[in-house]
Simulated assay, not measured.
Amino acid sequence: MSTPRFLELPPVVRRTTLRTTRGEFAVLEALPVGEPERQPALLVPGYTGSKEDFLGILQTLTRVGRRVVAMDMRGQYETPGTPDDPDAYRIAALGADILAVAERLGPEPVHLVGHSFGGLVTREAVLAEPTAVASFTLMSSGPGAITGRSAERATMLRDALGVLSMNDVWEIKLGPDAVAAGQPGPVISFLRGRSLRTCPRGLIEMAGELTTAPDKVEDLCKVCDDADLPIMVLFGEDDDAWDPRVQAAMADKLDAVRVVIPGAAHSPAWEAPETTAHALTDFWNSAERR
């Protein structure tokens, strides 16, 4: 199957694999023209997502001389899963994976970004090893477990995968939902391929983590204060996962930089890529000046 045009990589971006102490991880690596002059950045997607969720911002993020890597977490799309080890998908274990990837991007600390469920995972990495991180951005993520309709969707997917194949779930639910949302054909083709290559065990276990994760804002406050770690909370003004008011309150508790992306919902990297990329670059540059 040919690559959908919307997934064609910019000249500065390549698909590759990073080999770490915790296994191999599929990534999109964006390299600046010339030698990187700034600290690298690592972008982590959310539940049911993949590295391609950041494709719209990668080229812009390299323009100041920065290496930027977006990854598939364990079991997501092109990263192998561990279907016989449900504990590998616990948030703490996934956080350890993030640290292993960050170590490969070093030796300097990385600017770490976690989108949605990826925010809960990257938070574990920060809590475990704050010195590995130059700055931390929670993108469209919350203080703890997701609730409301998003939690219901995650639970329904988890339950369906307990009795159906991924192909059946796509045909019965995910595919029709994509069509109803008005997604164009190439996007639907990619989403189908991504779904069928994602580890079902990973989706089942991650759904449990997503819907039960405790609020660790106080823990994050202490670690970031002790490590003098810059933190940003970035979200779309119309986010339909974690309520924007909840994310704003979290930012206040963390004494974090707060950025609200106009015209965006839960995926600002796709819905407002230039605005999102510039907000990240400004924050990262400010963190490095510190």
Rank of each mutant, 00 (worst) to 15 (best):
G119Y: 05
G142L: 03
A269N: 08
G56P: 09
R289L: 12
M73K: 07
P40G: 09
Y77W: 14
P45H: 15
A249H: 11
D225G: 14
D252R: 07
A145S: 01
V13C: 05
R258P: 05
A256K: 10
P11A: 15
D240E: 13
V113P: 04
G142C: 10
D282I: 05
V68G: 00
D225C: 12
R104F: 03
L203W: 02
I188A: 01
T137V: 15
A251I: 03
V101P: 00
T122Y: 02
D97E: 14
L196D: 00
F235L: 12
G162W: 04
T122L: 10
T281S: 14
S165P: 01
I261D: 08
A213Q: 01
A248Q: 12
G236H: 00
R258Y: 06
A102M: 03
A96H: 03
L61K: 06
V259S: 12
P4G: 10
E52A: 10
M71K: 01
L18A: 09
P184N: 05
M1D: 10
M206E: 14
A207P: 01
N167M: 09
E124P: 02
G118M: 07
A248W: 12
M139G: 02
A88Y: 09
S140G: 15
A102V: 02
P40V: 04
E209W: 00
Q39M: 13
L7Y: 02
L229C: 11
E288P: 07
M250S: 05
A92K: 14
T155K: 08
M206L: 04
S141G: 02
P86I: 12
V179R: 14
A251S: 11
I98R: 08
P36D: 04
E129P: 06
V163K: 13
L157N: 08
R67A: 08
M206N: 13
